[in-house]
Nucleic acid binder design. Structure first.
Lengths: 341, 341
DNA sequence: CTGTTAGCGCGTTCAC
DNA sequence: GTGAACGCGCTAACAG
């Protein structure tokens, strides 16, 4: 778009800088890279020339030598970018902004497209691949023929030789219970999400475990459904009809929790006075928009992304690692459990 | 992670393939690229060797010659990825998956970080830059010193020499009105979002224009607030208190619309029978979760992304273009305006 | 201190 | 039908 862009389509090169500064290319290289054995005056001139030409080193060419590209590929299967974005941010931040760039591509849950993107990424010589799934269930490994480290996030690989990073959904369930107990609730029920999701089962396990530890029963058997607000509304109405004494309600997702809040209001129950409600995911747009705003357990995706990037580069440094690593979740308290919070 | 990965950290090169196949590099190159003057048997051997070594051509090196990298940088200021993701998908799909890859980076609305990412992207020799803003207000241009085409999406550049792509928010307002009129609503009100956003003002203009064209007044002066559900709830209560006759309600965003639905239910109004409600943005998670689901005007981000990518490459082909281009929006009808839809 | 030379991985002429 | 030579932009050994 710039005028000079047409004349010099790809920007100034080191050669241009060297010419302008009246030195050789290698001297210019050394000067700009702050390496020794360069006279201060020479360095000045080179720096000035670079400045004047608004020279940008070609990282690709730089890395042609080193073999690394400072680039990571992120293959997601999470259409809405709900997980991918925070994970990407985390990865980007792992080494300071700009030091590493992330290719993002969406495979839409399609294995063919996934391999296609994998190929495209490898051909661009990414230093590593981060694969993000849309559910915490195991997924097929991309295999071990890949010449760069691969880290699976959220959806673990079915191959124990691979490294998979997961949020601790069991712990998340425990945190939800512990919070309700800490604010004095004793008559607690859980409305779970889609039973085919490992995340749903894990959260249930964590909840049951924490309740058992407190020597309390769940006031009703846990109903499973899906992750929708509609399910939250229906299940809550059902639950309150049979167990009106409930004073603490854990919902399998923020969407379910939103449905629960709706139903509770329709039933004339005050939240949090009559019933305290906790969700999972801490999906901002849902959790902060409701009345009252929703207490929720955050999956810490950003930390997962940061860790994923770190592991990729650790693997490049030869550090072999495998198995499933879980990352603790984080409870975010809002008005649905503590008035005015 | 793979065993061979440690031995040959960066994957097989064309040279490796040639060696294994017992031919020269150039022969291997021609064979793999399906070019003529290669004996079929030779080609076979080369292909086999490439297969065996799981050889991936290095696009970076390929493009070292052509000067293009098949890569676009996407700088976003939209933290939640609400706009960026669909725009990215659109860009990715513009030329068929894998043909082009997208670097995504988030500048968090910070000009410094933006320039930093710009630098990082340029140094990776992207073929073009797409800048995505979080609001449709004009934003400072990145300047014309950039050696690749830049396209601004959602937030237009303040420099008319730049190319900016925007959703047609005025048209979106008109579509909302036309839809309500088409289902027989005549007593229409609008609850606007944050008045400091151009998008809010544009939608208001479109709505006023369409109402004027139908020779109908808005039943109440349009209140401005912010984009939240809380504002939607408050404004709706206020509106219904003074104008209980409203039968069509246009909300400045899906969040506001969700708040409106809440308030309407509290007031005992049936949606859509008593009041039909339309939102803007078609934010799936909000629009489909409510009861009833929300009719909303979609901003067509994916189309914007596709167009952005096309314009980048058109510019590379020398096609100069500038100014602001708007893209029509798309009404998505659901149960909040037509029963059961 | 500075310049020269040799690659990095690949496609692309060219001569053979 | 094949192979050597060149270049892309840069860094890293060496020479000077």
């Amino acid at each position: 778009m710039a005028q000079d862009a047409m004349a010099r389509p790809r920007g100034a090169t080191l050669r241009d800088v060297a010419t302008v500064a009246g030195v050789s290319v290698s001297t210019a290289s050394k000067a700009l890279n702050g390496r020794a054995h360069v006279h201060p005056d020479t360095r000045r001139r080179v720096m000035d020339a670079a400045e004047r030409l608004s020279f940008t080193p070609n990282v690709l060419a730089q890395n042609l030598t080193s073999g690394q590209s400072g680039t990571v590929g992120l293959i997601t299967n999470d259409l809405e970018g709900r997980f991918s974005i925070p994970i990407l941010m985390g990865a980007e931040n792992a080494f300071g902004a700009g030091k590493m760039s992330v290719f993002l591509c969406d495979a839409r849950g399609d294995a063919i497209r996934e391999r296609y993107h994998l190929q495209a990424l490898l051909s661009r010589r990414v230093d590593g691949i981060i694969v993000v799934g849309s559910r915490t269930d195991v997924r097929p490994s991309l295999g071990h023929e890949i010449p760069v480290p691969v880290v699976y996030v959220y959806a673990p690989s079915d191959d124990p030789e691979d490294l998979s990073l997961l949020p601790d959904n069991v712990g998340a369930g425990q945190q939800a219970v512990d919070h309700l107990l800490s604010i004095g609730r004793r008559t607690i029920a859980h409305i779970a999400g889609d039973p085919t999701y490992a995340a749903a089962q894990d959260r249930v396990r964590g909840i049951q475990h924490a309740m058992a530890a407190a020597q309390l029963p769940l006031v009703a058997p846990t109903p499973f459904g899906n992750w929708s607000e509609a399910w939250g509304r229906a299940a809550t109405r059902q639950l309150l009809a049979t167990h009106p004494e409930v004073d603490g309600l854990i919902c399998g997702s923020d969407q379910i929790a939103r449905g629960a809040l709706d139903a509770l209001r329709d039933l004339g129950r005050d939240v949090p006075r009559d019933v305290a409600v906790v969700g999972f995911d801490n999906w901002e747009i849902l959790a902060t928009g409701s009345a009252p705003p929703l207490t929720s357990v955050d999956m810490n995706f950003e930390a997962l992304g940061r860790m994923a990037a770190e592991r990729v580069f650790a693997a490049l440094d030869g550090e072999r690692q495998a198995g499933i690593v879980t990352q603790p979740c984080r409870l975010v308290v809002r008005g649905s459990t503590i008035d005015g919070a």
